[in-house]
């Protein structure tokens, strides 16, 4: 799964498979981080506080 686990080989199969995996994980991770940080920022700015 990670380059330091011993099954890891720097070949095309690993690069394609794990490239796709980490690409997807990065998008999910960055997306959710962005949402949380922006929500915290928005809350700090008082946005949504008037909401019932």
């Amino acid at each position: 799964m990670l380059p330091f686990s011993f099954e890891w080989i720097w070949d095309m199969s690993h690069l394609v498979f794990h490239g796709g995996l980490w690409y997807a994980l990065s998008i999910i991770g960055m997306g959710i981080t962005f949402c949380i940080l922006k929500a915290a920022y928005d809350t700090y700015k008082g946005k949504g506080s008037h909401h019932p």
Binding site: A39, D42, H51
Partner: peptide
Amino acid sequence: DKVPFFHNLSHNM
């Protein structure tokens, strides 16, 4: 939804 942070989080998502 009454909690501002959750409201904002939901909106952003």
